[in-house]
Computed example of a mutant assay.
Amino acid sequence: MGAPKCGTTSLATWLAEHPNIYMSPWKEPRYFDWDLKARARITPEAYRALFADAGPQHKAVGEATVWYLYSREAVPAIERELPGSKYIVMVRNPADMAYSLHEQLTLNKVEHIKKF
């Protein structure tokens, strides 16, 4: 997990390339952030199915939902369902992150103010 525009996509991609790590094919399923507004919710069955190809050779199994960092419920829910989970949290200089996020939102036509 991590803040947007902090390298989580790159890290998830690099981890998935390791033969002993299984990363969800859907980077951000947002299964555990129940307190945050999401466009759609994944079912428990669909969430488990994301990890169906994980096998005994995988020493680590994970996903990379950045929004868990903002959720008050995600970590307690993860700990209830998957006790002893390990976390990697990525952060970045807030000014650099804000500029990068603004550029992405402008490109995606979500932000209408062009000048940062």
Rank of each mutant, 00 (worst) to 15 (best):
K5Q: 10
P29Q: 07
A60D: 06
E28A: 02
E103Q: 12
Y87D: 09
E111Q: 11
D96L: 01
Y87S: 08
A95E: 13
R80N: 13
S71G: 04
A64D: 05
P4Q: 12
E81Q: 10
Y87L: 11
A60E: 13
P44V: 04
A46I: 05
A52F: 09
R41C: 13
G2Q: 04
I78S: 12
K37Q: 00
P56Q: 15
N20E: 11
V110I: 12
I88V: 02
S24K: 07
H112E: 12
R92G: 04
I113L: 09
Q57D: 12
L69A: 14
M23V: 00
V61H: 06
L50Q: 08
A49I: 00
N93H: 01
T9E: 00
L50P: 12
S100A: 10
Y70T: 06
A38F: 13
L36I: 01
T9H: 00
L101R: 09
D35H: 06
V110M: 12
S10I: 06
K115C: 09
R72S: 12
S100Y: 05
D35V: 10
T43D: 07
A16R: 01
T9W: 02
K27R: 03
A54W: 08
R48W: 09
T13Y: 05
A52Q: 14
L107H: 05
P44D: 14
R80L: 12
Y70A: 08
A49Q: 02
K59Q: 10
A38D: 15
N93D: 01
N108A: 15
I78G: 07
R30T: 13
R80P: 11
D53Q: 13
L82C: 14
T106R: 03
K5M: 11
W26A: 15
K27H: 04
L82R: 10
L15H: 08
K115W: 08
S24E: 07
P76A: 10
I21L: 02
V89G: 07
L36R: 01
R72F: 15
S100C: 06
S100P: 03
T13P: 01
M1A: 05
A49V: 02
I113G: 03
V91F: 00
A3C: 15
N20V: 05
S24L: 11
P76Y: 11
P94K: 03
V89S: 08
L107R: 07
V89W: 14
I113A: 06
V61S: 00
R80T: 15
V91Y: 06
E81G: 13
A77C: 01
A49M: 09
V91M: 04
E45L: 09
D35R: 08
S24R: 02
A16T: 00
A98P: 02
H102Q: 03
I21P: 04
K37M: 00
R80K: 12
H112Q: 09
K5V: 08
A74G: 02
A49P: 01
E111K: 10
M23K: 03
L82H: 14
P25K: 07
E63K: 08
S71P: 02
L82D: 11
A64T: 00
N20C: 03
L69G: 12
T43Q: 04
T43Y: 04
I113Y: 01
P29C: 05
D53G: 10
W14H: 08
N20D: 05
D35T: 01
